[in-house]
Design a protein around this nucleic acid. Structure first.
Lengths: 247, 247
DNA sequence: TACTGTAAAGTGTGGTCACACTTATGCATA
DNA sequence: TATGCATAAGTGTGACCACACTTTACAGTA
């Protein structure tokens, strides 16, 4: 069983996993915050509905509100955050079921297309990286390490798609993962999701070593479709437990 | 012939078409600037490579740099602007041919899918709006009104896709148009583009009145493919004239 | 004329503050 | 105990300013 993910849920917020800014790496503070928070959202460090305060975020990062505000606005534009009430507070979106199937179909089209184009251009070095990521996912699935699993799940897919060498397409796909990150984190806690998902991943890996483009696309599409099914289940369960358990 | 679009090119920048903020409509200044500039980019009011200065933009809009900076950062996150040199000045991206075909294939997948899903849900009222937009495009094509054409071209496609009732998909599609806006504006100046494009639009309109989903998808895909071809031609021609004509 | 170095203008960046507004808190009252 | 109101705390927003940096302009020199 995956542990420690539902630990009073408000006691430790997503910022606790994000290190303060190591200033002056040549990049602007705003860009560093943007990259950190974006990665954190994809990795599911923030829960759906979690509110992000500008001042608290600035304090956690050791900067002022100005660069934080810009970074958060950028992520809002990506769909990773949304303005909530009359207070205009930014929070992690709670996807509706309609949005979930919307994202699923976009992923099926785009990631399927990316996989189809990537198949022929996967170098030997990249194949090793993909195989390694898949192996780490297997280990994470058995030991129940959610962080390790999610990190390598994204890495596994990203390595494949990046081989298509289509930057714009890659950006759109990443945007979909940004939206799904928080809910995927919750879905990973259900063990049957892991076993089913790993079957698709293994099929994709076999297709890669065989250089079979159509087979790779099929495996990716199956992974997305099955994951979307688990995600809707997770969403339903999470909403009822949230509605009864908390305020 | 479409006129007045290449009028010394730096004398009138994109801001000349954007009205100063009519303050306090309930929305924040930043949101208004974001919406205005986004629409302006889709409409092609800014040329590829045009630089956007925070202070000049703030002066043109009658506000300070703070909300302008956030809005521009948001659009940068959408891909509608990019940071250029060591000066970090924001400018309208100059798409490469690789990015152009990247965007084309994303559009073929996504807008084709949207058209397929929209076909069954186009109400009679919406059909009238679509027919009207198509008629205005025809008029614009004959009179040579680039503004009118571009406005109704986007309206025509958006009305169709919106019928699919998929907000996330619609947002991604809009992001692709945001990137293409500036270069489309240049492509419209070539008359053969208009006649060819209108043939696809008419085919789409016929498919809509016949409620033929597959035919609608085919017409949309053809429109996108042909337009992409004209866009690469325009890009090549624009780059050589730009390289020789200007500094 | 061509070139170089200095000054000026312009650029984004991030810190701070006052403001309007919403939400939470707590005390007084019924 | 429950309710209502006033106060306090917290929120995003937009303006301003100092800073570092780049680009442009211009003067002086070879």
């Amino acid at each position: 069983m995956i542990a420690s993910t539902t630990q009073t849920s408000t006691a430790r917020d997503g910022w606790s996993r994000i290190a303060p800014l190591t200033l002056s790496e040549g990049a602007t503070a705003q860009a560093q915050i943007y990259a950190s928070l974006r990665e954190a959202l994809i990795s599911g460090y923030f829960q759906p509905g979690e509110e992000i305060s500008l001042r608290r975020a600035a304090a956690a990062l050791g900067t002022s509100v100005t660069p934080v505000r810009e970074a958060l606005r950028q992520i809002e534009s990506d769909g990773g955050l949304e303005v909530f009430g009359g207070n205009r507070v930014l929070r992690v979106p709670i996807l509706s079921e309609a949005e979930l199937i919307d994202i699923r179909d976009i992923r099926v089209n785009l990631e399927g297309f990316a996989a189809l184009n990537a198949a022929g251009h996967i170098t030997a070095a990249r194949k090793r990286l993909i195989t390694n990521a898949c192996g780490l996912m297997h280990r994470a699935a058995t030991t129940g390490d959610a962080d390790l699993y999610l990190e390598n799940n994204w890495r596994f897919h990203a390595l494949i798609y990046r081989a298509a060498e289509r930057p714009v397409l890659m950006g759109v796909i990443e945007g979909m993962w940004l939206r799904m990150g928080p809910i995927i984190r919750l879905a990973v806690t259900t063990p049957q999701h892991l076993t089913r998902s790993m079957a698709s991943h293994d099929a994709a890996l076999r297709a890669i070593v065989e250089n079979n483009a159509a087979k790779l696309q099929h495996a990716i599409v199956r992974d997305i479709t099955e994951a979307a099914h688990d995600l809707t289940d997770t969403l339903r369960h999470w909403e009822i437990t949230r509605g009864s358990g908390m305020k």
